[in-house]
Design a protein around this nucleic acid. Structure first.
Length: 383
DNA sequence: TATGCCGGGCG
DNA sequence: CGCCCGGCATA
């Protein structure tokens, strides 16, 4: 998870009467303004498979309080834009554990009755918010909008501004914003800048490759479900200043993902290789994408900086890659799924040979190699 | 469920 | 950096 966003979930925290629709369908909640919030949600959702192994050691919190069943965790950093570096009040990380209480474990007070496969656990109604971040957090980010038009790179602070810029300068449309068809969305991107290194960021991130025929448009995120999520973290600027897509939400305009340039994740499996898309690639859904030729070039390529939402690591991936043999098939069915780092790529496959744990057993743990003792990759029985 | 180990925290 | 552990993926 990227802790790039210290202020996620602000308005939801510490309230037990969260509007349910906000939780069940992420979209209406514009406060889910960050990727990490989404990703963290999904992480929680999917970590339920697992291991609330010993409720005996649950620590100081009282499991009967039932407030532990909420799947949410939150940075409660109210108005922390002002002092981004001030750490939260030092509550111990133990207080954090209750969030992880799985409802499937059968032990906890998990309120999830008949399980809801739609992965909204809003039934864990009582939410234990107000929890500060136990540890690290980053400083605040500032959202800017950068024109992606070739050789332009203009950066404005509002979505409306950048749209108007693109519309008038690049698209050559003089009309007002209401005649916009949302095409401008694809020529700018939202960038998040560290407020203390704005100039640095601006200078360093000019991804406009000068040799391309067309400006590198932000990727249209193919999956509808992802689109919904992507909608949920559209920046609030774009919504309060003006309706970015005047009127119609074309599948293209919805997908203008933005905010992908500065998102650097720690996890390698979240980064994905660029994917080039042939121009006639719209196989099923988006008829609009065929008309998406900003210049008169006949073909263009779209490169992903990262998947549209950063929660690829643990999301619903109904189609895992079958195995190694098939990962050579690089031809991704375009627009059928986002480039998603499969686990085979990210995680080292489990070694064949015996490991210290197996050889010596748990009781002889002191005979293990240090890596095994530390739950790292075994160094003694490498394969 | 057991195991391997990545990611990350702590001192 | 050593040590440890949570959590996840996989067998």
């Amino acid at each position: 998870m990227t802790e790039e966003h210290p202020h996620v979930f602000l308005s939801v925290v510490s309230s037990t009467d969260i509007p349910k629709n906000c939780l069940s369908a992420l979209s209406p909640c514009s406060n889910f303004s960050s990727h990490s919030s989404v990703s963290s949600l999904s992480l929680l959702f999917f970590s339920e498979s697992g291991s609330w192994k010993d409720n005996g050691s649950a620590g100081p919190f009282t499991p009967s309080s039932n407030s532990s069943s909420g799947g949410y965790w939150s940075w409660s950093a109210p108005s922390d834009q002002s002092n981004p570096s001030t750490p939260s009040p030092p509550l111990s990380a133990d207080s954090f554990k209750p969030f992880r209480v799985p409802s499937l474990g059968g032990v906890g007070p998990g309120p999830a009755g008949p399980e809801d496969p739609s992965l909204d656990d809003q039934d864990g109604s009582s939410l234990l918010f107000d929890e500060p971040i136990p540890r690290k957090r980053k400083n605040s980010m500032k959202v800017m909008f950068k024109c992606l038009w070739k050789n332009c790179g203009k950066v404005l602070s509002t979505a409306a501004g950048i749209q108007r810029h693109i519309r008038t300068i690049h698209l050559g449309r003089n009309c007002d914003s209401d005649c916009s068809d949302g095409e401008e969305d694809f020529y700018y991107t939202e960038i998040k800048l560290n407020t203390d290194s704005v100039a640095d960021g601006l200078s360093s991130l000019s991804p406009v490759s000068p040799s391309l025929l067309s400006p590198p448009p932000p990727p249209p995120s193919p999956l509808p479900s992802l689109n919904q999520l992507a909608d949920s973290h559209r920046p609030p600027q774009s919504s309060d200043t003006k309706e970015p897509q005047a009127g119609g939400t074309t599948p293209l305009s919805r997908s203008a993902p933005s905010a992908l340039y500065l998102i650097h994740t720690d996890h390698a499996y979240q980064a994905t290789a660029p994917v080039s898309i042939p121009s006639n690639s719209s196989n099923s859904t988006s008829s609009a994408s065929t008309s998406f030729t900003p210049t008169n070039s006949s073909s263009f390529s779209i490169s992903w900086q990262s998947p549209p939402v950063t929660f690829t690591g643990s999301t619903v991936s109904p189609s895992k890659s079958q195995g190694f043999g098939e990962q050579r098939s690089q031809t991704i069915a375009v627009l059928s799924s986002p480039p998603r780092a499969t686990t085979a790529l990210s995680r080292k496959v489990r070694g064949e040979g015996k490991k210290c744990r197996k050889v010596y057993g748990m009781e002889n743990r002191d005979m293990w190699c240090t890596a095994c003792r530390w739950k790292k990759a075994c160094q003694r029985f490498t394969d």
